[in-house]
Design a binder for these strands. Structure first.
Lengths: 181, 181
DNA sequence: TTGAATTGTTAAATTAATTTAACAAAAAAT
DNA sequence: ATTTTTTGTTAAATTAATTTAACAATTCAA
């Protein structure tokens, strides 16, 4: 478990704490911190929990925290990655999201556009806001027509479907975590 | 660590495995499974990893799998939760995000609006698309003016700042995972 | 330049996790 | 019915994590 050690050391350093300071806050021995950081022990969950708690970091955060660090933060309108699919065009913020947790899309549904059915069952969570037009959204047993200003959010494991039932383009800004494609 | 035990037991049952079957696949003793499930031991990371690996479940999944399940999927424009803060108004999709991983906001920056500085260091990831107006965004050492159609995305642990440097309202749809407030 | 405090490491001692091996209870097989 | 497996639990034995307490190296003060 060398990897955990490296992560912990990095985390400790960003908080500017010494092994002993961290040990005191977490109520563990400083030796434990040293041994874990060097991968010379296989820490118990309880020990690691006390340490992470004292750093205000949850297990989920700690294990999902493989920070992406491209230095690209800004995207001009024409730099958005276009992903076309039939009558729907998706403009994605960022191109390679493989190390990312968040996907943001500017979506344009042409009249008659229809996603068909469930985009699979990712353990994901998604939502969006309608900016223009008319969007029929189905989630589980529920169906709704959303107009400009309306919004949706649900767990992506539920079967869902999007349709533009209007006669003009429908525009939506959506987000999904983790990315769905 | 009673909670880990309950989770593991539930997970094992959904896969239809007995303690011994699981133990064999994970190459651990069946006693360990029993002790963990009853919270009578504080398992080591390595032991738990072997068990989860054999179930094709990552640590991240194991700890983040607290599915939210409100049956509320749709939000009319006037149902968005307004969170005002000085010259900025945030319209949030959903009210209680405590069990959620995703926060979606419709943001309106009045002229002169300024977030000041770093919204702290959440181990989060955020991004957004500018729909209207002029937004100055600072991330780390970089500063950019974004106009309608432009976008941003970055790791929220970087110091960042938003300012409306135009003379009209600026509108942005943003997303953040996990929610920042 | 000296002394005090703080750093990270590590052997030895202690405590606890993990396995081995046994047990009883329940289900399956003959 | 009765044997044979399979189930989950647990004491005892073994192995390993964790702490205590020491060490040398570095930084800070005066």
């Amino acid at each position: 478990m060398q990897n955990i050690g490296l992560k912990l050391k990095a985390l400790r350093n960003t908080k500017g704490l010494s092994q002993r300071k961290l040990a005191a806050r977490a109520n563990v021995s400083n030796a434990s911190i040293s041994l874990i950081e060097h991968g010379r022990t296989d820490p118990s969950m309880g020990l690691l929990k006390r340490i992470l708690d004292s750093l205000d970091v949850s297990f989920a955060e700690f294990f999902s925290a493989d920070d992406f660090d491209d230095e690209k933060y800004f995207y001009r309108n024409d730099e958005l990655s276009e992903i076309s699919s039939g009558l729907i065009s998706y403009m994605q913020v960022g191109s390679d999201l493989s190390k990312s947790h968040l996907q943001i899309l500017y979506e344009r549904y042409h009249p008659g556009a229809d996603t068909g059915q469930s985009m699979l069952s990712h353990n994901a969570e998604e939502g969006g806001i309608v900016l223009q037009g008319r969007l029929e959204v189905t989630v589980g047993e529920q169906v709704q027509i959303l107009l400009a200003g309306d919004a949706y959010r649900f767990n992506s494991s539920l079967p869902h479907r999007f349709r533009n039932t209007g006669n003009k383009d429908c525009i939506v800004v959506s987000a999904c975590t983790p990315p769905s494609f």
